[in-house]
């Protein structure tokens, strides 16, 4: 099952999105929050992200949901700390972080591939709300 990592500048945002996404998840689904800095401040930490990716991976790869700016830079930096095998099996979804995370978790819980999970997450960009 593809793991899902939530990278936000805010620990609360990452934890909150994880909580909402887990409501839709299969029991074994891995969703890991990587929000904020070690000191609790606002920001992203590439080492926290790489640890989250490793703990979210069960062998089928990891989809990563990001919020703004440095979340992308920190995640790409985190990729450099992974071993080659895992690095080839991780991808950032170009999607809104909350809607994308929920879509990704639903797709991943069905046992879909990383490519399918990313595509579904990115489909959340065009979800209409009203």
């Amino acid at each position: 099952m593809v793991g899902v990592v939530i990278v936000s500048h805010s620990q609360k945002v990452a934890e909150g999105i994880k909580e909402m996404a887990l409501q839709m998840a299969a029991p074994q689904q891995k969703v890991v929050a990587a929000g904020g800095m070690a000191d609790g401040g606002i920001g992203t930490d590439a080492f926290k992200v790489s640890e989250a990716i490793i703990s979210a991976n069960t062998g089928d790869g990891v989809a990563i949901m990001v919020d703004l700016g440095s979340a992308v830079l920190s995640t790409e930096t985190a990729f450099e700390f992974l071993d080659d095998e895992l690095r080839a099996n991780v991808k950032i979804a170009d999607a809104p972080i909350l809607e994308g995370a929920i879509s990704a978790v639903v797709e991943a819980s069905l046992g879909s591939s990383l490519t399918a999970v990313i595509a579904t997450a990115e489909g959340a960009r065009t979800l209409n709300k009203c």
Binding site: G41, G43, D45, A46, G69, S70, L73, T77
Partner: peptide, 15 residues
């Protein structure tokens, strides 16, 4: 710097 800056400057200067 990568682990402690927090903003985009962390991964940029860190790299």
């Amino acid at each position: 710097l990568i682990s402690s800056v927090g903003g985009a400057a962390g991964p940029l200067y860190g790299t």
